[in-house]
Design a protein around this nucleic acid. Structure first.
Lengths: 207, 207
DNA sequence: CATTTTATGTTACTTATTTCACAAAATAAC
DNA sequence: GTTATTTTGTGAAATAAGTAACATAAAATG
């Protein structure tokens, strides 16, 4: 079982490689890629090796090949539909976020409990919670983004799981309970700042 | 040197403990806390031990004590001022995000290159980039949030570092280059979905 | 007040990840 | 075409993280 860090790095490699490609580079050495990402060359070779990505002795890695292979690893047979739950500030900005479509993810609909937010005829319609199961089934949605207040997060999670969702990106500060086969990744913005601040202070003390 | 996972868990413990406290609980056992967070009891005791948090044999941990001690670890002598760079969709929703102030972080000003967004008299004013160094110095800001397009992210990073910023929460998909003593945490929303999708597929194959 | 129970705290063990070291292969130099 | 150089790929060593085991102390029981 591959750990998160492993595949997170692979995704970083990909976006860095795309930049090198834009600059006209055709090949790259593990050392150079590592230097740009802040990872050791050995780490990169090990990562590649684990995913069966091969380079060329003395000639490094062909960037185009590399990107194609990494794309293959994260391949989606079709663009993936995503359901957004919570159409508040965060939800609305996630809806407008361009980075998702770049990676073949499309927020196809949003859910909110507030009737004043419901809109059926917009590009991305907003529905009440009770419509969620129907939408999930109709559009074969496997991933949900939870951007609701903490108080509602677990309830929303239960609803999604019951409707067949297999992956959740959770922006609430709750640790959600769900069956083993549901993949939950958490983003806790407050904790991110706390962690940064903690590390700053640690670094200052170590000097 | 404590690793990220270690301190991330500690922050999770804190928010979970706060919930138990609201429900009227006075003490908690490592086992119960672990069950609610999805972490082993041993892990929790190890984490506590590492940070010199002590419980009471047979009686578990006093929740109030525990929260106080964890707060002590993440203690800020004063509320921390944060500078937001990029006042687009994401930036605006981060500005409105309530989770930051809960943890004593305050976005005190925003920076954007677009003159039409500049506002000096709002609760949180929006300034042009050239004002950043002055604001950072005046308000003793140590943390910046980068919510600008990739193309501008490294430039913004350089500007912040030059002005004395020591921590950056980076929402661009770039891996930013900065001196060792600057703590950078990355949130790449697109990659989060990719990782979730990858893990879903992995889980399905393993069955 | 002795005995049993229970939960902590730490040590020992296991597993995972990273770094080191170097053989092998491909290119470049002579 | 032989030698030198460079970069990959991978085992071995080192480090880090997580799990299990258990001694210990506090509380509960009788």
């Amino acid at each position: 079982m591959y750990l998160r860090s492993n595949i997170t790095r692979l995704l970083q490699y990909r976006s860095c490689l795309a930049k090198f490609q834009e600059l006209g580079f055709k090949t790259i050495y593990s050392y150079n890629l590592g230097k740009h990402i802040g990872v050791s060359a050995e780490q990169i070779r090990k990562d590649f090796s684990k995913f069966n990505i091969r380079g060329h002795k003395k000639a490094g890695y062909n960037i185009e090949e590399l990107i194609t292979t990494i794309n293959e690893i994260f391949k989606k047979s079709s663009p993936q539909n995503v359901l957004l739950i919570g159409y508040g500030n965060l939800g609305q900005s996630l809806m407008k976020y361009k980075g998702f479509s770049r990676s073949m993810f499309h927020i196809i609909a949003a859910i909110d409990i507030d009737p004043s937010k419901h809109k059926r005829k917009t590009l991305v319609p907003v529905f009440p919670p009770e419509k969620a199961p129907e939408i999930i089934k109709k559009h074969k949605i496997t991933i949900g983004i939870i951007a609701v207040p903490d108080i509602a997060a677990q309830e929303v999670c239960n609803l999604l799981v019951k409707a067949g969702i297999k992956g959740i990106l959770n922006f609430s500060s709750l640790v959600l309970k769900a069956p083993e086969d549901v993949q939950i990744n958490n983003i806790n913005l407050g904790n991110e700042l706390e962690a940064i601040f903690y590390h700053i202070q640690l670094k200052q003390k170590n000097i």
